[in-house]
Design a protein around this nucleic acid. Structure first.
Lengths: 233, 233
DNA sequence: CGAACTGTTGAGAGGCTTCAAGCCTAGTGG
DNA sequence: CCACTAGGCTTGAAGCCTCTCAACAGTTCG
């Protein structure tokens, strides 16, 4: 179940709209398109695994992946979810370390692989691009620091509320206020850093308190303000 | 108590040994020295505060600082301790955000301030240097991700053991195996993300188990291997 | 239809926090 | 030089939050 046998459609592999590449000129975008290799990935397939050597980074043009680390006795800690328009694997690539996370597809995806050398060439020859890269890294580092403070000081209840709001920001809601990403209770737990049962109990508390509505994996937001207060944001 | 009135001695402000600057040539090091402003800071003084606008970054040539965020109801979460040879504040500076941490001196220090423009100039004109910068950021990002997994999945006991080992790595021990940094119980707690009383209880457990010896704030390592096992490393 | 996975609920245990009280130590001022 | 004070350190008790284990219902998919 590594990937489908059919190549993605050309319109599914357009990189020019990626914010990440906003400082590249047409020639550079051309080089990118020439060097890229795009592929379909079915739900459940692993794009790269913790400890593996990376040959390039990936641009997501369709679908959703989860990025996680494997902790004590195999329990996975989800670092983040990524979607179309996001970039993955550049961190380990640029520090020339082995991948420290695993990327698994949770919604059928199309990914474009860009070789390390291409990235290095662009960074070296386009100051605006490398400056942008630096800024992105710095911002991610702040987010990581924020998250450390959160997870160290907040209760599980606060963290769950926060994760729900975070997902709302990243994946948005549809016209009925229903979250546009469908996660198992276990995945939520692995993001919050708690037990599945705790997530279940807290979600039904949130429901009883009229903060959310639940239909299977669908989460509908009813009272975002109280949720925000509950997350101590 | 912002700083002493005396200027630091010239030999206390040498930047050429900083690993961070290893890719700069003599001219560039010269520019650095020309642009820098060095100052003594007494224990307890704050170098920059969360939410403030930064005008440059700091090179620590002497002393120790703690870098922390202020979380729920004022509880501080220590992100890391830094010492001579380390650089601080470049993260917020480069992403052009307000400082997201506070830096407080816990051992009399000498710091050199380098203006933002100088950093930007060096990054823009020296690809090796900006590549090195990118690699440093990527490595820190991995460390932050590792720490998130730790803190989310480990017990307080495991985290305390890990923090002790981490301090041992960063600050080393003297000839008697005594840790070269002196922290209050509260500071340890703020690093682990727990209550002061919990740290006290666990430290005396470690002592009873023959892992460490305690004399006030001095921590002596007796059995690093068991400590490592205890930290699940 | 059955197997495997996901979700739910209950009970019990234990880790950690909080509050409260007292001790110790270093530094200050008379 | 000593008493005093403030801040750090320690210990105990109580209680809550969260985890774990276990049993079972519901769902999905071959």
């Amino acid at each position: 179940m590594r990937s489908s046998h059919y190549s993605p459609l050309p319109e599914e592999t357009d990189l020019s709209e990626f914010k990440f590449f906003k400082h590249l000129n047409d020639t550079e975008i051309g080089k990118l398109n020439y060097d890229k290799t795009c592929q379909n990935y079915k739900k459940g397939s692993v794009v790269y695994r913790e400890g593996s050597r990376l040959t390039g980074f990936y641009c997501i043009t369709k679908g959703i992946l989860k990025i996680y680390k494997t902790g004590i006795d195999g329990k996975e800690q989800i670092i983040r979810f990524v979607k179309a328009g996001d970039i993955v694997a550049f961190r380990s690539l640029l520090s020339q370390e082995l991948a420290c996370t695993t990327a698994k597809v949770i919604d059928d995806a199309v990914l474009c692989h860009i070789p390390y050398q291409t990235l290095l060439f662009l960074l070296q020859n386009n100051w605006k691009f490398s400056h942008w890269m630096i800024q992105i890294l710095c911002r991610e580092l702040r987010e990581a620091n924020d998250y450390i403070t959160d997870i160290a000081q907040k209760t599980v209840r606060e963290r769950l509320a926060e994760v729900l709001l975070l997902l709302k920001d990243s994946f948005d809601v549809d016209e009925n206020n229903i979250l546009n990403i469908s996660l198992t209770r276990e995945e939520l737990a692995n993001m919050v850093g708690t037990a599945t049962e705790s997530v279940i109990r807290l979600l039904s508390e949130f429901k009883q308190d009229g903060l959310i509505e639940l239909k299977g994996r669908r989460v509908k937001f009813l009272d975002v303000n109280t949720l925000r207060r509950m997350a101590s944001l």
